[in-house]
């Protein structure tokens, strides 16, 4: 089942998971009112939860890259393996950058409808 192409997309699968989780949590939080009180630094519980989720997501993706780098793709030809290793590294770096970039807004932007 461990098809090398699955390893190629793994980092972005983690990104997608983080994306869904963060978005769903934000929407749920607004709907049940986690944004209303301030717990510390004039910030609401919802904001803290989101920040924590984003950081966990980032760590998970960086971890994924590290894990991918340690596994070499076991295939017949050397060329094929280096090819797959290269592609999967590029993709993982892209995913890490995307995570940092996409979720930066959780730190200060308006959380819920006015």
């Amino acid at each position: 089942m461990r098809h090398p192409l699955l390893l190629v997309i793994l980092a972005f699968v983690v990104w997608s998971g983080t994306f869904l989780l963060v978005y769903a949590t934000q929407a749920t939080g607004c709907s049940v009112g986690w944004h209303n009180d301030e717990i510390a630094f004039w910030r609401s519980p919802l904001r803290f939860i989101l920040i924590v989720l984003v950081i966990i997501g980032l760590v998970a993706i960086v971890g994924t890259l590290a894990w991918l780098r340690r596994r070499n793709t076991l295939t017949a030809a050397l060329e094929t393996s280096t090819f797959l290793d290269d592609v999967k590294t590029y993709v993982a770096i892209g995913a890490i950058f995307s995570s940092a970039f996409c979720f930066a807004g959780v730190f200060w932007l308006t959380l819920c409808p006015l």
């Binding site: 994306f19 963060v22 978005y23 934000q26 929407a27 607004c30 989101l50 892209g94 950058f97 995307s98 970039f101 996409c102 979720f103 930066a104 807004g105 959780v106 932007l109 308006t110 959380l111 819920c112 409808p113």
Partner: peptide
Amino acid sequence: VGIPHVALSFFSAASALVAIP
């Protein structure tokens, strides 16, 4: 449609990012 700004920001950033590939 009235989605809060922080949620829009995820999608806005991803939309900008897609220009890179």
